[in-house]
Design a protein around this nucleic acid. Structure first.
Length: 489
RNA sequence: GGUCUCUUGGCCGAGUGGCUAGGCAACGGUCUGCAAAACCGUGUACAGCGGUUCGAUUCCGCUAGAGACCUCCA
């Protein structure tokens, strides 16, 4: 690889050169959604972030196995629900089979991710399909002495673990601090220590989702599935584990502990975390109820939105910020992103209309390419890539007006840059204008001809009326020196 | 309360020890019958106070404000 990729590893809190364990193969695991609700903007961020990483690694020539799980069991609710499974609870509310809920929201998730041009992972395992493997892990951890059975549930023995290993190395937490701040939770009395976490949970009688086990009829603990499924498909040690910042503790910390307790090895080499989407400076999240679903975003039906936004605009919006910074949502910010996105895409269309300059322009296109790679290699700096492209947009527009000159080769080179960076790696696609049929083309031509005749005889009242009426139904007219252009907006 | 992070012009957001991204909005201009788009130009931002330095928005300290995690969460 001629361009070494550097990526921020949460484990070391440093920028590290990415070197796969078994090049050219790369194993990447990302925590997927818990399918008990519609996906919102907060789900889109990691999906897009790691989609870009996936795409970029592939572009660099790596053979990537990308695993992203579906959590369809195992998340406890510790409020008034007495450890009831989240999925089961929702099912009860809606009078549905749990698996029906799971299927519904999984389909929804896929649908919206497809809309945003997020590639499907190589493997998308479900927690409920790996109960046996999870039980095997639990047994292994018990055998190794790092877990104990209590009243049909199995808990991870943190104190035992810390005698040999460092619990808190990823999140930088100290056990004493944790001790002082751990809250009173249901089932606490079953644990030896308040910070022990469940590997297996005995199910209450009314609990729908349950499986047989040596310890009780119950369900696996909420941190176990990722450890089990990642190593099952990627090996005991693999390259990348990603997810949202909010999963850092306790979820990812527990994953490390589980792996070490089971196999003696830490399985993840590069921990990568994306930052959160905020709204009014606050985390957008399920529990706060301040989230905007992708469905609402795409159809505009939310009081915070002035209009519907195209999925590509949302993707662009996400990529305009660096993945490790918070991204503040607002209607205004989205409108700005929308404008910018169309500007970027229109410049690509204009490339086909430029008259190539016969003399070679002094612009070095290779330099732009180089800068794009440097930006991506510097911890996936997508906003910088976009900034570089907006410099090109200026040149493209200038060339169209013939105040800048681009040679045939220049034009082709820029097209190639678009294909590589914008379409392939950033995964932004031009929004196809609603299939303008041949008939529409012809009708438009008649209208524009009539308008041109009116303009020629200085009947601007008529020409403006035609333009306004077309505008009202979503067709925009632009007069250039030689002709009139139109497009559906 | 503990741990950690952040604070960039009207908004969103990159980045750097000196050469001041980008997008959106605004203003002036070119073009146009007028628009729209595009192009050109303008606004000289880095929370506050100290310190290090020839020089700090960028490094260090303090203060203020905001946020995240400590409980399921992308």
């Amino acid at each position: 690889m001629e361009h070494p990729l550097f990526i921020f590893n949460t484990l070391s809190r440093k920028l590290e050169q990415f070197v796969p364990l078994h090049s050219p193969f790369v194993g990447m695991y990302v925590c997927g959604p818990t399918v008990y609700g519609d996906p919102h903007l907060g789900h889109a961020r990691p999906a897009v972030t790691f989609d870009v990483l996936f795409r970029y690694l592939q572009h660099l020539g790596y053979k990537v196995r990308y695993v992203r799980n579906i959590t369809d069991v195992g998340h406890l609710e510790n409020d008034a629900d007495h450890g009831e499974d989240k999925i089961a609870k929702k099912a009860r509310l809606e009078q549905l089979e749990p698996m029906e809920v799971v299927q519904y929201y999984t389909d929804r998730y896929h649908y919206f991710m497809d809309q945003m041009n997020v590639k499907r992972p190589s493997i998308e395992p479900r927690a409920s399909g790996h109960i046996i493997e999870q039980q095997e892990w639990i047994q292994q951890i018990i055998n190794n002495g790092f877990a104990y059975v209590s009243n049909g549930s199995v808990y991870f023995d943190i104190e035992k673990y810390t005698q040999h290993f460092h619990y808190g190395k990823l999140s930088g937490r100290k056990l004493d601090d944790l001790l002082a701040t751990t809250r009173e939770l249901e089932g606490q009395h079953e644990k030896r220590h308040p910070f022990d976490f469940a590997l297996w949970k005995k199910a209450a009688p009314e609990h729908i989702m349950r499986w047989r086990s040596p310890w009780s009829d119950g369900f696996p603990g909420w941190h176990l599935e990722c450890s089990v499924m990642s190593t099952k498909y990627l090996g005991e040690v693999f390259d990348i584990h990603g997810g949202g910042m909010d999963l850092l503790f306790p979820h990812h910390e527990c994953e490390i502990a589980q792996s070490v307790a089971a196999s003696g090895k830490e399985s993840v080499r590069y921990w990568i975390h994306n930052n959160l989407v905020t709204i009014n400076g606050q985390k957008m999240g399920k529990s706060l109820g301040n989230f905007i679903t992708l469905d609402e975003l795409f159809n505009g039906k939310n009081s915070l939105l002035s209009k519907a936004f195209h999925p590509m605009v949302v993707r662009f919006f996400i990529l305009q910020a660096h993945y490790r910074g918070t991204l503040d949502f607002s209607n205004e910010a989205l409108l700005a992103a929308e404008k910018g996105y169309y500007r970027l895409m229109e410049a690509y269309q204009i490339l086909n209309k430029i008259k190539p300059s016969p003399n070679t322009s002094p612009l070095s296109m290779e330099e732009y390419q180089q800068k794009c790679f440097e930006a991506l290699n510097d911890d996936l700096n997508t906003p910088k890539v976009l900034a570089i492209f907006f410099e090109l947009v200026k040149i493209i527009n200038g060339a169209y007006q013939e105040i800048e000159s681009l040679s045939e080769q220049n034009i082709q080179f820029i097209k190639d840059l678009y294909h590589t960076f914008i379409f392939e790696i950033l995964g932004l696609l031009p929004i196809e204008s609603q299939q303008s049929t041949n008939l529409l083309e012809k009708v438009m031509q008649i209208l524009l001809d009539e308008r041109m005749i009116a303009r020629h005889r200085k009947d601007f009242e008529t020409s403006d009326r035609i333009r306004q009426k077309l505008n009202n139904i979503g067709i925009e007219i632009k007069d250039t020196k030689t002709h009139t252009e139109w497009k559906i907006i």
